[in-house]
Write a protein that binds this DNA or RNA. Structure first.
Ligand code: FES
Ligand code: FES
Lengths: 142, 142
DNA sequence: TTAATTGATACTAATATAGTATCAGTTTAG
DNA sequence: CTAAACTGATACTATATTAGTATCAATTAA
């Protein structure tokens, strides 16, 4: 069971890179090279993040991408939802033919509870927090 | 992001059916029909559960499957691990080339923490618990 | 002895994930 | 002015995972 897929993973790294250079434009190429992310793949992820107003872009020479949304406001939950879809109970749990009575389904009930736990945990992890932790860790190691 | 896939889902239902008739053999066919699970698919799941000593089987006419392990000792975590593999951080997080320093990777650290939370939540949910809840709910609704 | 069953395993189909390629449009440095 | 460095948009391919089907041999109870 994979919690984060590559796209979410890459997106997080790209956001960390952009947050570290907040206020200036970084090209997709430089991010891809520095973080070993497939270039064209990354470009699609960046465009998706523009659509969600996490970042902005500037075209042309010296163009690139820049943070827009406050890193402290970007949660891993949000990124998972963008790139892997909303956390969901397996579909079959919602087919009336199976349960007869959705409201009565204990399994569904338990899983929704856990779902909420997972979401709230991932919500505690923001890009801002990760960045600060990363900086703190790199200082210790110097 | 799917938490439970069909195989885990079907396995849980099959176990609930078997637990409800603890001590007697139920055929794959009857479980499949009653719970609307694809017959051949279910058979493979049942065999997998035999290999993990959750259930036992009897061949031939009047044969079928029967619970072996105590339903209270079967957690959803265990079933997820059997059918969807151990919950894991995305692989790239472990490739030295990327992080440079695994021990220093904050993202990995955070995700492993959440992973533990998810696991411990799913461990609270056992087949035995689900069965009791199910029985309680069906009485209320009668 | 035959019909109902599991054991084992191979196969197909559908979907999701991962990665590549292409071309048009924009911008700035020279 | 123009070439090079960029993004926008989108189509394409490859691989892996999930879901489901099919087949045939072996077992067993009636
Ligand atoms: S199995 Fe359908 S809602 Fe639970
Ligand atoms: S990205 Fe490699 S261990 Fe975190």
């Amino acid at each position: 069971m994979k919690v984060l897929t590559k796209n979410t993973d890459y997106a997080i790294r790209a956001l960390l890179a952009l947050s570290a250079k907040k206020g200036s434009y970084l090209s997709a190429k430089s991010i891809a090279t520095e973080h070993d992310i497939p270039y064209q793949f990354l470009r699609r992820l960046l465009q998706e993040m523009i659509r969600h107003n996490l970042i902005v872009s500037k075209e042309g020479v010296q163009g690139g991408f820049m943070m827009q949304k406050d890193p402290d406001e970007i949660t891993v939950t949000e990124l998972i939802e963008i790139f892997q879809g909303k956390v969901q109970v397996s579909e079959c749990m919602f087919r009336k033919q199976i349960c007869g009575n959705r409201a009565r389904c204990v399994l569904r009930h338990e899983i929704m509870r856990i779902e909420r736990v997972v979401q709230s945990e991932f919500e505690k992890v923001t890009i801002g927090k990760l960045l600060r932790d990363l900086e703190a860790a790199s200082q210790v190691n110097q």
